[in-house]
Amino acid sequence: MSSSCDPQDAPVGDVGAALMVIDSRLRAVYGGRTDPDPEQQRLVAQFADSLGPDGFDALLDGACTLIFMYMNWLRTVCENHDEDVIEYVVPGMVATMRMMPLTFRPEVVPTMAGLLVAAGSGLSPNLWRAQYGPWTDAEMNPLEATAALLAERINRMSGGDQDFATRLITDALSGLDED
C-alpha cells in the first residue's frame, strides 16, 4: 500500500551539504567544545545564506534524508538483533532532547520524535513533516541536532569510530555515483 510519505516520492535534497554541517557539528563535540563555536556558527550561517531559498530547502531535505538513512541503518542493525528500531532509538533520543532545553525547546521535541518515528517506520521524514505546514525557525537547530545525535549514536555503536556515520553516508553516495 502506497503512502503520501513514501520515500521514493521525497526530494533527496543536498545530502552533501547537510552531511558537511552535521560532520562539522560532531567534530566540535568530539573536540571537547560544549558551547557553540562562534566562528563555526558564523561560517554555517554564511553558508546557509549563500544557498538562497531553494538551496536552503535542499539543505533541509538533505538533513531529513540523513535522518532517514541513519534510521534505516539502525533499523537493519536492530532487526539483526530482534529489536524494534523505534523502541531502541526514540526513547533515548527524546530523553537526550529533553536534557538539552536550549537546543530542543519543549514544543519541538514531539516534532523531532515524529521525524524519528516516521523514518523508523520507513516513511520520508520530510514528507511526513510537510503535512503540518512549512518548517519553522524554531525547528532549524533541533533538526540539525537530531541528525547529529543519530550520527553520534551510530558512531558509538561502531565502537567509537568518530567518522563511521559520515563514512556510512559518503559510501552510500559513492555507490550511487558509480551506478
Results as ranks from 00 to 15, higher is better:
Ser3Val: 10
Ser4Ala: 13
Gln8Cys: 08
Ala10Asp: 08
Asp14Phe: 01
Asp14Pro: 02
Val15Leu: 06
Val15Phe: 11
Gly16Val: 10
Ala17Lys: 09
Met20Ile: 14
Met20Lys: 08
Val21Cys: 14
Val21Pro: 03
Arg25Met: 06
Arg27Met: 07
Ala28Glu: 15
Tyr30Met: 12
Tyr30Lys: 14
Gly31Trp: 15
Gly31Val: 01
Arg33Ser: 06
Arg33His: 14
Pro38Lys: 07
Glu39Phe: 08
Gln41Glu: 10
Gln41Pro: 06
Ala45His: 13
Phe47Asn: 05
Ala48His: 07
Ala48Asp: 00
Ser50His: 14
Gly52Ala: 14
Pro53Ser: 12
Phe56Arg: 05
Phe56Thr: 09
Ala58Ile: 02
Asp61Cys: 15
Asp61Ala: 04
Ala63Pro: 06
Thr65Leu: 07
Ile67Glu: 00
Met69Lys: 04
Tyr70Phe: 15
Met71Phe: 04
Cys78Gly: 11
Asn80Leu: 15
His81Lys: 09
Glu83Asn: 11
Glu83Gln: 11
Val85Arg: 08
Ile86Phe: 07
Gly92Trp: 13
Gly92Cys: 11
Ala95Thr: 00
Thr96Tyr: 14
Met97Thr: 02
Arg98Cys: 01
Met99Ile: 01
Met100Val: 03
Met100Thr: 03
Pro101Ser: 04
Glu107Leu: 02
Pro110Asp: 12
Ala113Ile: 00
Gly114Gln: 01
Leu116Lys: 03
Val117Gly: 04
Ala118Thr: 06
Ala119Arg: 01
Ala119Pro: 01
Ser121Phe: 03
Ser121Leu: 10
Leu123Met: 04
Trp128Asp: 03
Gln131Trp: 15
Tyr132Ala: 05
Gly133Asp: 06
Pro134Tyr: 08
Pro134Asn: 00
Trp135Pro: 15
Thr136Pro: 01
Ala138Phe: 00
Ala138Asp: 11
Met140Tyr: 11
Met140Leu: 10
Pro142Ile: 00
Glu144Trp: 14
Ala145Phe: 04
Leu149Met: 09
Leu149Ser: 09
Leu149Ile: 02
Leu150Phe: 04
Arg153Ser: 02
Asn155Ile: 07
Asn155Gln: 07
Asn155Tyr: 10
Ser158Trp: 03
Ser158Cys: 12
Gly159Gln: 11
Gly159Leu: 13
Gly159Asp: 03
Gly160Glu: 05
Gln162Ala: 13
Asp163Leu: 09
Asp163Trp: 02
Asp163Met: 14
Ala165Thr: 10
Ala165Ile: 01
Ala165Gln: 11
Thr166Phe: 09
Arg167Val: 02
Leu168Trp: 03
Ile169His: 05
Thr170Phe: 00
Ala172Met: 15
Leu173Glu: 15
Asp179Phe: 06
